[in-house]
Structures are given as C-alpha cells and as structure tokens.
C-alpha cells in the first residue's frame, strides 16, 4: 500500500494499514487452529471495532472530552 500523493507510508495510512494487518491476521487465525488461535482471532478482530467505538464515543456531539 503506497501513500499516493502523500508519498510512502505516511500518517494517512499508518493506522488503516495496522488495522488491515490485524484484520487479515485475525480472519486467518481461527481457520488455522482452535484454542489459542481462536483467542488470537477474537482479540485482533476486535481492534478495528474498538477503534470505531472509541472514536465515536469521544467525539459524540455534546461530549466535552477533547482529543481525537
């Protein structure tokens, strides 16, 4: 994945690329085995969802918490 106009693995792509990597790993993990592989799958696939939830929570209209 390249950054296009921004050039290289710049700020725009750092977090999306990390989430994509975790997703690929998580999706693959549970098919490779059971037990610890299932746990790795659940833990890594939960990260993109948690990011959505935290960003939404912190920036919900009317919420005072600053920061992104």
């Amino acid at each position: 994945m390249t950054g296009g106009m921004t050039g290289g693995m710049s700020g725009v792509w750092r977090i999306p690329a990390a989430l994509a990597g975790l997703s690929v790993f998580g999706l693959a993990a549970a098919i490779l085995g059971d037990g610890v592989w299932d746990w790795l799958c659940w833990a890594t696939l939960a990260v993109p969802l948690a990011v959505c939830l935290v960003k939404l929570w912190r920036q919900w209209p009317g919420r005072q918490t600053a920061g992104v």
Partner: peptide
C-alpha cells in the same frame, strides 16, 4: 471514512 477504512478488510 472512519468506519469504512477501519473495517475495510472484513
């Protein structure tokens, strides 16, 4: 953009 890019691989 946020929800889309975060869950894009899935």
């Amino acid at each position: 953009n946020l929800f889309g890019v975060a869950t894009l691989v899935w």
